[in-house]
Design a protein around this nucleic acid. Structure first.
Length: 423
RNA sequence: GGAGAGAUGGCAGAGUGGUCGAAUGCGCCGCAUUGCUAAUGCGGUGUACCCACUAUUACGGGUACCGAGGGUUCGAAUCCCUCUCUCUCCGCCA
């Protein structure tokens, strides 16, 4: 969440962020509640101090005076309690609104209504020109015997799939390759809880707002994660880190569950939009320094690009526009990989930076070199998400005979397999 | 799933209704002592918020926090309830 001081002191900037991100929050009400809560806090503290003093005196007062003191204290006690109740009510409503206030954006964030107006800032490689009619990943997957969507749908519903044989192994290979790449970069590998508490979802800013997108086990008050970002970022929740522990570099791998509510009829074919996938995710927790976190943003973007380059997949990077930015993000770069069947670049990676927005919600702080306690900055980016990445991988690597060439970097993870051939 | 025990400051560990933000030990920081190190002595050592003052973070006053939330009481780390977590035993199990 945003620093309330920003809302107080730079109200117009916050209002502007609401407008640009298309988020409606009653800032006036929020400011009013903020003011009210400080007044109540002051009144409460005063009264409470008096009560504490008098209560202490009562203990050592002579017996004759006790009755009188006690009577006064009883009414004081009532008043304190009333103030406490009022204060709590205000705080509850305040927090509710506070959680909805969007983060401010980097000046470099372009303006636009939705993802169609994201601004391309880089291209690597070029879409392959086929000398034959290329097939899409579903056809390829079926004929190679590595994918089964029809049976999955029968037993698990829409947007599900089986990966089989080399398909299953290919996914594991891609994940492990990505994981290893990040470990070489100094990130600590993490396998994480897939079911998390509301605090973790709220802390990473998926809640409130993302209720429809997440699976939930109501009777256990648990949510299935939509990304390892949630448990990995929340890992040090509530802690004060030492300056020497930063930056904290972590790479998590987990299955990801998404309900995809409201997307009926969209991307219905194949593996593009599905309820469950696996992802390797990089997370950085660094000092509260705008320059430093911006530099990390570039670094984690670069890390992901290295993966695609190693896999020889054409891609582009877009600077995500305000209308497509999330509530919590300062800036976001998406990487889109060329997908022949879509005749377009499709999103495969998403690199976000949050400043202290998540850290404030998760209450992750650090003691800086001067001993001052501050909230950290957090960032994250996809390293690889599968099976979506299998779409370009299969489609771009296909040959006229229907076989698919395995990129060289993955072969060691597949026992040296070079080509997947039709059965 | 059943039975029991527990959760206190960076750590260990006292405290069972008032002067307890909390003994003591360790750790850490400062000072003193000291050829160096060690040892010793003295002092300090949580976080958040509010108020006052001021060059807005130094100093001062106050409030809250002893797993979380609620209750009893003039007053709760201490008593009661709920929840979470940890440990032990039994059962079950990948």
């Amino acid at each position: 969440m945003i620093d309330l001081r920003l809302v107080r002191e730079e109200t117009e900037a916050v209002r502007e962020a609401c407008r640009r991100k298309r988020i409606e929050v009653d800032l006036d009400r929020l400011l009013q509640l903020d003011q009210k809560s400080r007044e109540l806090k002051f009144a409460y503290d005063e009264k409470r101090a008096l009560q504490n003093r008098n209560s202490r005196d009562l203990g050592k007062a002579p017996a004759g005076e006790k009755a009188e003191l006690l009577a006064g204290l009883k009414t004081l006690s009532e008043e304190v309690k009333a103030l406490e109740v009022e204060q709590k009510e205000v705080l509850v409503e305040l927090r509710k609104l506070h959680l909805l206030v969007p983060n401010l954006m980097d000046p470099a964030v372009p303006r636009g209504k939705d993802d169609t107006e994201n601004v391309e800032i880089k291209r690597w490689g070029s879409p392959r020109q086929f000398a034959f009619a290329p097939r899409d990943h579903v056809d390829l997957g079926l004929s190679l015997g590595i994918l089964d969507i029809e049976r999955a749908t029968r037993i698990a519903g829409s947007r599900t799939y089986f990966l089989k044989n080399e398909g299953a192994l290919l996914e594991l290979a891609v994940l492990r390759f990505a994981f290893d790449h990040m470990i070489r970069k100094g990130f600590s590998p993490m396998l994480v809880p897939h079911l998390v508490r509301t605090e973790a979802m709220e802390g990473t800013a998926y809640l409130p707002g993302g209720e429809e997108q997440a699976y939930r086990s109501e009777r256990d008050d648990a949510w299935l994660i939509g990304t390892a970002e949630v448990p990995v970022t929340a890992y040090r929740m509530g802690e004060i880190l030492e300056d020497s522990e930063l930056p904290s570099l972590m790479v998590g791998m987990s299955p990801c569950y998404r309900r995809e509510a409201g997307t009926y009829g969209k991307d219905t074919r194949g593996l593009y939009r599905i309820h469950q996938f696996q992802k390797v995710e990089q997370v950085v927790i660094c000092r509260a320094d705008v320059e430093e976190s911006a530099a990390w943003h570039q670094r984690i973007l670069q890390n992901a690009e290295e993966i695609l380059q190693a896999l020889d997949q054409p891609y582009r990077v877009v600077n995500v526009c305000d209308g497509d930015l999330g509530r919590s993000q300062v800036q976001k770069f998406d990487i889109e990989t060329w997908m022949p069947s879509r005749r377009a670049y499709g999103e495969t990676h998403s690199a976000s930076r949050f400043h202290d927005y998540q850290a404030r919600r998760l209450d992750i702080r650090y003691r800086d070199s001067e001993g001052k306690v501050r909230h950290c900055h957090t960032l994250n980016n996809t390293v690889i998400a599968s099976p979506r990445i299998l779409i370009p991988l299969l489609e771009n690597q296909q040959q006229a005979d229907g076989s698919v060439v395995i990129p060289a970097v993955l072969r060691p993870y597949l026992g040296g397999l070079e080509v997947i051939r039709p059965r």
